[in-house]
Computed example of a mutant assay.
Amino acid sequence: MLNTSRFRGPAWLAASAAAALLAGCSQAVVLNPAGDVAAQQGKLVITATLLMLIIIVPVIIATLVFAWKYRQGNQDAPYAPDWHHSTVLELVIWTVPLMIIIALGTLTWIATHKLDPYRPLDRIDAQRPVAAGVRPLEVQVVALDWKWLFLYPEQGIATVNELAAPVDRPIHFKLTASSTMNAFYVPDLAGMIYSMPGMQTELNAVINRAGVFKGLASHYSGPGFSGMTFKFHGLPEADFEQWVRKARVEGQALDQASYLQLAKPSERDPVQRFASVQPGLYERILNRCVEDGQTCLHEQMAMDARAAAGLPRDICTPADAPQFVAALRQRAAPAAP
């Protein structure tokens, strides 16, 4: 049996402190990530914190000074029961926080637009802009129960619970979900982005350092949520091409039938690779019509729009476009008095 008596006292306290520090190291990635977008977000957190400390630190100091100066035992402290106003104090109390709020608002407004996940990247890092003609690597992401499916339309492959991208190449993620809303998050890469069934969200990011980084689902989605993690590999271009070739050699084909089998709820799935992907599969997943006989969402919306315009609900063809537009304009025109 383990003898715990030797862990008592100062040694036990030191061990506990060390464990706490090590546990906090995993959170430090947010402030020292490997991707430029995440790095900008981390700097924004630090800048906002420092701005708020301009108020917090003086208030804490003033609280301690006042408590000491006006303690019960200090008979020399001034006593002014009729004091009720100080113009200088009022200016300080209102002006300083107002200036900080203006600074925070301006900073947040600029960063919100600059770091918009839908906005294509204009730089690789602080020193290098994106070169003209560089195409982002497109990755289509599907949040399943409870695993991640990644499709590479340019390479024609797919993987489960494993993601890879070349270092210093922009990445354009398109995200959706099979059944339950979830959230895609690689702390080293960029901020969290939601994935929702029947909808598509987007995220633009870049990884600036080779390595293996943790990815996870940051939104609770059921009993398998805790195991819904994956590894993100930042690779040099040559190693990425080798990774793609490995998937093409080892993997199977991903089609409607294999996807429907994959989409069934399961927990802590191993890495899987698919050498080919059925054309249009992601669009069918997005529009929730993978199974034969289902009406796709975009087709259903087109039929509803035609019905609202007073036209037959049949799928609109290019030849119907003038009639459809004319009907909409007629319905939108103000009624005669």
Rank of each mutant, 00 (worst) to 15 (best):
S226D: 15
M181L: 06
A263Y: 07
R284G: 09
L260T: 12
F230E: 02
K264W: 13
I285M: 04
Y194A: 10
E283G: 02
E237Y: 09
P279D: 03
E291S: 13
K264I: 08
L189V: 02
F213I: 00
R284P: 04
F213C: 01
D255I: 02
Y259S: 09
A275K: 14
G224F: 06
M181V: 08
Q252P: 10
D292T: 14
G211E: 06
N287D: 04
V271T: 10
Y220E: 07
E241V: 12
S266P: 06
A253F: 07
A217S: 14
S258N: 07
A275W: 04
T201Q: 04
M181G: 15
S195C: 03
K231S: 14
R209A: 05
E241T: 15
V186F: 00
L254T: 05
N204K: 01
N208S: 08
F225S: 13
S218H: 11
N287Q: 08
Y220P: 03
S218C: 05
L203N: 05
K231Y: 15
R284A: 09
D269H: 13
N182L: 07
R209Q: 11
G251T: 09
L189P: 00
M192R: 10
A275P: 08
E241Q: 15
G222A: 05
V206H: 00
P270V: 14
A205E: 00
L286P: 01
G280T: 03
L216P: 01
V186T: 05
Q252M: 13
S276M: 07
A253R: 10
Q252V: 11
D188V: 00
Q242K: 15
L260F: 07
A210P: 03
F225I: 09
E241R: 15
E237V: 10
M192K: 11
K214L: 06
H233G: 08
R209L: 04
L189W: 01
H219S: 12
L216Q: 10
D239A: 15
P270Q: 12
E202C: 04
